[in-house]
């Protein structure tokens, strides 16, 4: 399955968003995720099914003004 994760192309065989995060070594409760520009809550990641062509954003806190 072809996915775009934080702007980078990935060819990966994961079914759910939670599996994708684990496969790419993202972990922690300070992450927020969106698929195709829509927020996916942390509690929904285990059941959230990914499909070919999905665009995933994984964000974390950083400095801001």
């Amino acid at each position: 399955m072809k996915l775009t994760v934080n702007g980078e192309a990935h060819e990966i065989a994961t079914a759910t968003l939670a599996e994708l995060l684990a496969a790419l070594d993202y972990e922690g409760n300070w992450l927020a995720t969106a698929v195709n520009s829509e927020l996916v809550h942390a509690t929904e990641r285990t059941l959230f099914q990914l499909k070919d062509g999905d665009q995933i954003e994984i964000l974390s806190p950083m400095q801001g003004g």
Partner: peptide, 23 residues
């Protein structure tokens, strides 16, 4: 204090976690 969000690096960099702990 104001804070922001940015793409987290893959591979367990945990930069966001360190900053959030400080805040």
């Amino acid at each position: 204090v104001t804070v922001s969000l940015r793409r987290e690096m893959a591979g367990g960099g945990r930069g966001g976690e360190k900053f959030w702990s400080l805040i």
